[in-house]
Nucleic acid binder design. Structure first.
Lengths: 229, 229
DNA sequence: TGAACATTTCGATCATGATCGAAGCGTTAC
DNA sequence: GTAACGCTTCGATCATGATCGAAATGTTCA
């Protein structure tokens, strides 16, 4: 009985190094980063990072893009991001009493992007607000926008019509590893995050995946969405 | 900026050993197995398997249950199973041309259980049939039973009312790693698999997660479900 | 063409952890 | 009690792979 276990072990081995895990974690925001930047994140020298990146790219967990003398790396597919999401969810739960709970930076816990949508306290608050206002039904099973939800997002200028050949899903629950709560993912979640970036409600911090909520953003999330944040 | 990367790496390290990956893969059917059985699966001596099992249980990926002199191990939570699902999906895709595609046993590919629901060709065929008959809508986003689907399963004797305190989801898509197609998971998927076992449409093989489709099962899946199998 | 810079390749070193034999522990049955 | 059995712990060995210095490659720009 051949199983997929050897491939599973090999894949896990690629994530099992702290440097590579840091690189993958850093790339979870969906953006591309240079090899040098990722070396810093991983806390290793450029030549070591290069070795790690080569292994990840060889296994097609990462895609590489050359721009001049630099090489930009990004997650190869959303499937990889989704896998990492699932692993982080389990990684965040460690019931060993001896173990201190993972120390997550306050900024990271407050607001970050998870591949392409909002996560952290902000992501959960926006999701909760949309549920309270009957814009959204969401549980572990899946999610759907209500008529009022579609109207709400439409009023904000979000076009929810999928590109013709995109099979991307509209609503999907994503288990937030820092909050241990569901937040909204899928095309709708990505559209909200994009809007927030465009309108300068949130700004990406140069380092890492966390985002800063601007003063205007605080007002917008509270008044427009009714988020308790 | 503290991230969850160290915990992620540690978690991945637990899965990164072929023996442990085999053990976890074997336990993906949700049942409990003895340490000796798992040593066989992992292809190591009992004392080595014991060491692996202790590490997995310590990190709460497995739960252990003593029955007399034996110890039965099972996956600790459905969250662990879901994480492994996601990893197997990625593990099954390895675009390196040098690499032969993972050799999955014919029995495994034909029919198996994935934690608690049907997978493999059988799982996909049943799911496809339910979609063709308008019993089910399913995409990556989520899924729902139609009125006719509820009636159909009700006629088969499946009670879909959730236990009061269960927050288990009704329909969920699960990406089949051997077929690269969606199949039905969640409470509905589990109910169908249970029914099939009860009515002797499928039988668990003593070794491994694959199941045998009985002659009666072939008739039932074709005539009752309309599955092309 | 040559200089500056980002990145990779090579080679040697070093640490981690997987393995199994032997022995110990715990439970059950007689 | 004691024998049988399943499983775990201990100890020593061995293999894999992470690391960095040094050097090479490749790209851009002048």
């Amino acid at each position: 009985m051949q199983t997929i276990a050897p491939e599973l072990a090999e894949l896990a081995g690629l994530i099992a190094d702290p440097g590579r895990a840091g690189i993958l974690s850093r790339l979870m925001d969906g953006r591309a980063q240079t090899a040098s930047e990722l070396a810093l994140v991983a806390g290793v020298t450029p030549q070591t990072a290069s070795w790690h990146l080569a292994r990840l790219a060889e296994r097609a967990l990462l895609k590489v893009e050359r721009r001049g003398p630099r090489r930009f790396y990004r997650l190869a597919t959303p499937l990889v991001a989704q896998m990492l999401e699932g692993m982080m969810t389990v990684a965040a739960i460690d019931p060993r009493p001896s173990r201190p709970p993972p120390r997550i930076g306050a900024e990271m816990r407050r607001a970050r992007t998870c591949y392409d949508h909002l996560a952290g306290e902000l992501g959960v608050a926006v999701t909760d607000a949309m549920r309270r206002h009957d814009h959204l039904n969401l549980d572990q099973e899946g999610g759907e926008l209500t008529a009022s939800g579609r109207a709400f997002l439409g009023d904000l200028g979000i076009d929810l019509h999928a590109p013709a050949r995109s099979r991307r899903v509209l609503c999907r629950p994503c288990l937030d590893w820092s909050e241990q709560r569901l937040h909204l993912a899928g095309r709708a979640g990505a559209a909200i995050a994009n809007l927030a970036l465009q309108r300068d409600w949130i700004r990406r911090r140069p380092q890492g995946r966390s985002v800063e909520i601007t003063a205007a953003g605080l007002v917008a999330f509270r008044d427009l969405f009714g988020a308790r944040i």
